[in-house]
């Protein structure tokens, strides 16, 4: 592990240092969710785990996709695919701000030379039926993270409250590494035998996806997939809680939530294709929110979500 008192030399070193830092602070280091999502918040480790009473502490990188932000790899800081680093701790510890500042130090921000500020920024996700209060964190006038205390998710009051940290990794890394164009940023160590820049890794895909997102994606197919995902989500949640095969209580919140994520991403693709009008937009967002709420309803019916069988049920099953 590199010495934290030095400035990191690459994008990946910043990620590795964050992983090491949060691991050391007791978070479970999870892997990215294996589906297309618009932000790290959509990972079930955040959305679903912020519900219910069970304590939780997780950190992970989440590749995120925002089809409308694609610029064919030409814009210095806009990408249709980028990385977020996400930390979720429930209940939010009293020293979360200090922990967060420690993570900045760990990735090479010298607290004695920089001006770190917590500037009001309330967070709301209409698609997840979620909101929270917090700040955007500024380092010398640049937003480097979002810091949120979740108040509601999927229409449920969060109790206890989770503290969520989201780092926009590319922007943060560009700042720390002093790079002006994302594609020029060293991905691995510049001294490696095969040094790779962010552009070496992603310029090709940014071009390809921008073309597909904006002009080629088959909107009829997407519209159909949206409806199918919506139907599948509802159908999964319509199943009886008790599995007839095993006789166990298995509420399928996660498979249903996968369909909700899918619908959300398809909506983003349709939006990028420009086939959704202003009024339809609201309707689509509302449909995804309905799914998110249903999934939240289901999750709190699971043991992980804090459901406990009452005595009568225990007796009946015994």
């Amino acid at each position: 592990m590199s010495d934290v008192s030095t400035t990191p030399r690459s994008f990946q070193e910043i990620i590795l240092r964050l992983q090491a830092y949060w691991a050391q602070k007791g978070c479970a280091i999870l892997q990215p969710y294996d589906m297309e999502v618009g932000a790290g918040t959509f990972h079930p480790a955040t959305t679903l785990r912020s519900l219910g009473t069970q304590p939780w502490a997780a950190a992970y990188v989440q590749p995120s996709r925002r089809p409308t932000d694609g610029r064919y790899g030409e814009n210095p800081n806009r990408l249709q695919h980028y990385y977020q680093y996400q930390v979720l701790i429930k209940p939010s510890p009293p020293d979360l701000q200090a922990l967060y500042l420690g993570s900045l130090e760990a990735i090479g921000v010298d607290m004695d030379l920089h001006d770190i500020r917590f500037v009001e920024d309330d967070w709301e996700s209409p698609t997840l039926g979620a909101w929270g209060l917090g700040w955007e964190v500024w380092c010398d006038g640049m937003e480097v993270s979002q810091f949120t205390y979740f108040q509601q998710v999927g229409g449920y009051d969060c109790h206890p409250v989770s503290g969520e940290l989201t780092y926009g990794l590319e922007r943060l890394a560009m700042y720390i590494l002093g790079v002006d164009h994302v594609m020029d940023m060293p991905f691995n160590d510049p001294g490696a035998s095969i040094p790779l820049s962010y552009g070496d890794v992603f310029r090709q895909t940014e071009e390809e996806y921008a073309r597909w997102n904006f002009d080629v994606a088959n909107t009829e197919v997407l519209l159909r997939h949206f409806v199918e995902a919506e139907q599948e989500c509802k159908s999964i949640l319509g199943q009886a809680h008790d599995d007839p095969k095993t006789g166990k209580r298995i509420v399928m919140a996660h498979p249903a939530y996968d369909q909700c994520i899918k619908a959300s991403h398809i909506f983003n693709l349709l939006d990028a294709r420009g086939v959704i009008s202003v009024t339809e937009r609201q309707a689509y967002i509302g449909r995804v929110r309905t799914l998110a709420k249903m999934c939240a309803d289901a999750f709190v019916q699971t043991r992980a979500g804090g459901w406990v069988p009452d005595a009568a049920d225990e007796k009946a099953t015994a």
Partner: peptide, 14 residues
Amino acid sequence: AMRWGAGSLRWVRP
């Protein structure tokens, strides 16, 4: 106002 941690007090931030 908001809640934080496991408490129920509401304040603008913790």
